[in-house]
Design a protein around this nucleic acid. Sequence first.
DNA 1: TAACTATATAACCATTTAGTTATATAATCA
DNA 2: TGATTATATAACTAAATGGTTATATAGTTA
Lengths: 119, 119
Amino acid sequence: MADLSPRMLANVADYFKVLSEVSRLQILCELRTGGKNVSEIMQATGMGQANLSKHLKVLTQAGIVSRQPRGVNVFYEITDPVCLEICEIVCQQLIAQISQQYQQWQGIHSLGEAPQKAL
Amino acid sequence: MADLSPRMLANVADYFKVLSEVSRLQILCELRTGGKNVSEIMQATGMGQANLSKHLKVLTQAGIVSRQPRGVNVFYEITDPVCLEICEIVCQQLIAQISQQYQQWQGIHSLGEAPQKAL
DNA sequence: TAACTATATAACCATTTAGTTATATAATCA
DNA sequence: TGATTATATAACTAAATGGTTATATAGTTA
């Protein structure tokens, strides 16, 4: 954290809040491989139309995706690669946590028992 | 995002949710330079005692900080450097966004006007 | 053991927000 | 222009959550 002003902390918190909903992460997952219009995202995620529209608005206002009307459709695209970057980092961190917990569990249960069995 | 299972998405969302509150970011800021006990964090942040205790529980359960009772006091410490790493990345991203917006604004307002004045 | 201090928890309130339903807007086509 | 389709918005409900106050717990000291 380069800047520690309350203002900056609030902005960082807001950014994380946008990424703290499964529905919005789903949308970003679908857009990873390229932009899509609303109907395509709706079909891919199975979300309701109004709900999807609201989440897309949140992502757009956060500057994470861009909105481009194209005739009848509206095309959304990820404009902030950082969001995917930090998702990736968090994924790896969570996997590391779980792996670490398992190793601790294994260590506890191998005391005096047959440790090779678990492998 | 390496894994895209709904389970993993939910875990990622939960991780971001922990970081999506100013109070918890404040706590992490205070712990950046080293562990502190509750009283020290309370004084540094000005948070209420019960409120602080709840936030520390959330951070602990997320595996981001560790809890170590030491006599009467309880010592908290960051155990997950990834949380600071991604905060830093988001900070830089937000600064880049604002800088970019300013340059766009500047571009618009320099059309036909004296562009050097703004500098 | 009693008093004191540090921390955690319970109960409560107010606010926020995700999802749904219904409606509005805007573009296309007949 | 009217009908149709795609997207956005308004209104509402239910659930989650941050902050506060009061109380409980646990370690320390007299």
